[in-house]
Design a protein around this nucleic acid. Structure first.
Lengths: 215, 215
DNA sequence: TGTACATCAGTGAACGCGCGTTCACTGATGTAC
DNA sequence: TGTACATCAGTGAACGCGCGTTCACTGATGTAC
């Protein structure tokens, strides 16, 4: 931040245009869905000709990949930031909900319907693991009053996704249900499945969170 | 079934071609995603020319709408069928999982990332209510050992989505968490979010179901 | 049973569109002496 | 400080593609007498 800017003006310009392209890309995704992402359309909105963007992104797929990676990075930073500020599981859940509501399309780019054929880059696996690590940490500090389930026994032997994490199976189990339950409420809400029903999804989210904290 | 066939041969032929078009449509959705659905591509695979299909569907959107409606109808029938066979909540959950795994794209067509701009027809609201009614029936037969939550109080006043159903708020609450929890596990699983982790999602699903039945 | 007519399935040409991407090019910006 | 050169941003034309959709037409299927 305060470090001397080692970037040349041209590098800074490039970074700025790339950022602007991405901003338009998100706008376009919000308007017409991720599958409608189009370099030509973005160029037009930026007042440039289509091929110009190929100076900044090698292909449509590269842009798409970068948007996905950015989305993961953003969620991981939000999580890490909350944890570093002393947030417990409730704090993480709150941060997650805020992040999701801030930009539902970004949430769906990560957790939504997968596009057949498209393969996410290796980076996101690393970032996803980072997110999971924060979640595991938060789950590890909670007492567990649950009887051992077949899933716990299974997880004792299937836990390489929590590699390096010394949590017992009950904590892994806890992390999985936190993830799936919060995602369950959030994804239904963001997808508009609660639209016709007029109850407040925030209360359902809170109730699920309370339940997770209590048991 | 055993009733005399009142359809003319032409009507039967039409119905058969429409069904064949839909079958190819599902194949295409599975291969390239719902947004890649194309009348021309379907026609080509059927050995017909593109415009021919306009005898059977007024537009691409009409086909899309019909696929969505069929998906809802299929799930509602599965649910209703299970309930009529005496299935309890566990049976419904099992039926849901089977239905989802049978064709993940069909599941996502209903519960996946919404396509901005696309508006589902009114029929699906009715069918969705039918599904919810079955779920509410199953939840009503279970004893509830939960303390009253803010959500319950809220639901006492926001329950027109369960109109005609004499269930107390606790049952509505129960139905919502059954829905969101099962969807949470299923959607993460079908989207491949558990892919890298090698545990068995069926056990997580079963654990969540046990938890729902126990509390 | 046979003929005359209406219905309807499917074709091929055509329209306009937008897409991703390549390529040779112009003109501006930065670098080296 | 000024000139010569290299770098790089952006353009416009072009390629091939597939899309949804309309339209005038052919040929087969079914219906009425």
């Amino acid at each position: 931040m305060a470090a001397p800017d080692t970037k040349t003006p041209r590098e800074r310009y490039r970074a700025q245009v790339r950022a602007e392209v991405k901003a338009h890309a998100w706008e376009q995704i919000a308007t017409a869905g991720a599958s409608a992402l189009s370099l030509n359309a973005i160029a037009k909105r930026m007042g440039m000709s289509g091929p110009a963007l190929y100076r900044y992104f090698a292909s449509r797929d590269e842009l798409m990949t970068e948007l996905i990676t950015d989305a993961y990075r953003s969620l991981a930073d939000t999580f890490r930031g909350a944890a570093d500020s002393g947030a417990d599981l409730a704090g993480l859940a709150h941060a997650l909900r805020g992040w999701a509501l801030e930009d539902p399309h970004r949430y769906f780019l990560i957790y939504g319907t997968p596009v057949p054929g498209y393969h996410a880059p290796g980076d996101v696996t690393t970032i996803a693991a980072e997110i999971m690590a924060v979640l595991l940490d938060a789950c590890a500090t909670l007492p567990s009053h649950r009887p051992e389930s077949p899933l716990d026994i299974h997880l004792a032997d299937h836990r390489q996704w929590a590699e390096g994490h010394p949590a017992p199976p009950a904590v892994l189990h806890r992390a999985l249900i936190v993830w799936s339950r919060l995602h369950g409420v959030l994804s239904l809400e963001l997808a508009g499945q609660f639209a016709g029903m007029d109850f407040d999804p925030a209360l359902l989210y809170a109730a699920e969170l309370d339940d997770l904290l209590a048991h």
